[in-house]
Design a protein around this nucleic acid. Structure first.
Length: 321
DNA sequence: GCGTCCAGGTCTACC
DNA sequence: GGTAGACCTGGACGC
């Protein structure tokens, strides 16, 4: 595994719009990581890694000051070269965008006044934000490995991919492993991906995606600048990326329902388990769009991170799904 | 132990 | 355009 030491660092402070819960945003209750499964969260501080432009790796040490209604994020960014003033400002803006520090989520919270589910979610996870990432490839790996597999199996595939082909950065006394680059996966044979990462039929999909992404493919920010429909259509041009995976990888707020989450939403909305959850997915997506509009992505993220509380509050067996 | 079934999608061939 | 069947792997289940 390639290892990079990151001796230089710059620090900056980010102001946030209220409410902003740093801990809930960077360390989600359901266990989803901000940027890599190998990041470290201790004493309200996160050490993680990121691949920004040109494939360059950075280390991030992030913490916060203030309360949910008046929070600032304090970031120390580590790199191999000392960044100049312009580069520091560019990186500062990327981190602020990534952490949704300036996003106005008041309209989402306003939904709580007339929607009992949103009211419960806002109460339980006050100030939590959806986050973004600059490099699209890890998001596509996530989408592909989530297909047709229980979460333990998906974890196995993702862990093997990072351990076999990922990169490691060392900074501030920490070692953080990060996702492989598309350039790296494009060079690996399908047979090797199958054998070493247990990807099965997903191996040719992932190799093809890596080849496409490293050649000519929009960046995450370019996809964000497109309309939601155009971005999704572009993602679905990648072989192995269908409707569900495109919703996961797209920067636009989608409603990435799979069989498991369809069962959860059907229980939450109608109080019963669906007989055929897969067939119900298109209908549930339409309901979500009508009921929560552009905030349906937030509802999705909040629900998946609030299952124990929702199960207790609405007396549903959500945790057994 | 061993065989069978099937899962937190997608593609393709066939109608 | 709609839909059944195949696809890796590994855990659950029945015997």
């Amino acid at each position: 595994m390639k290892t990079s030491d990151l001796p230089f660092s710059v620090s900056f402070k980010l102001r946030t719009t209220s409410p902003y819960s740093f801990a809930l945003t960077v360390h989600k209750p359901a266990g989803w990581s901000l940027l890599t499964p190998y990041e470290v969260f201790e004493d309200d501080t996160l050490w993680t890694a990121a691949r920004f432009s040109s494939g360059e790796m950075h280390g991030l040490k992030i913490t916060s000051s203030g309360k949910v209604n008046d929070a600032s994020v304090i970031c120390e960014l580590f790199s191999q070269e000392r960044p100049n003033t312009n580069e520091t400002e560019r990186l500062r803006q990327i981190v602020a965008w990534m952490l949704s520090a300036q996003e106005n989520i008041r309209p989402f919270y306003a939904l709580a006044e007339r929607d009992s589910l949103v009211k419960a979610l806002v109460h339980d996870l006050f100030g939590m934000r959806r986050t973004k990432r600059l490099d699209i490839f890890p998001q596509l790996i996530l989408a592909v490995t989530l297909q047709m597999a229980p979460i333990e199996r998906s974890d196995q595939m993702m862990t093997l991919l990072i351990e076999q082909y990922g990169e490691k950065v060392t900074f501030d006394g920490k070692e953080i492993m990060y996702w492989p680059s598309p350039e790296k996966i494009a060079k690996v044979s399908v047979t090797e991906l199958k054998e070493r990462c247990k990807l099965g039929y997903r191996a040719p999909f992932l190799k093809g995606i890596a080849e496409d992404v490293r050649m000519e493919f929009p960046t995450f920010r370019e996809l964000e600048a497109m309309s939601a429909e155009s971005a999704k259509a572009r993602l679905m041009e990648l072989k192995g990326i269908g409707d569900y995976s495109a919703d996961i990888a797209s920067p636009h707020p989608g409603f990435a329902l799979d069989v498991w989450s369809a069962r959860i939403f059907n229980l939450l909305l109608f109080g019963k388990e669906p007989k055929s959850p897969r067939a119900l997915i298109p209908r549930l997506k339409k309901i979500a769009e009508k009921r929560w509009g552009e905030w349906r992505g937030y509802v999705f993220t909040y629900v998946l991170n609030d299952i124990p509380n929702l199960a207790r509050r609405f007396k549903l067996n959500l945790e057994e799904l």
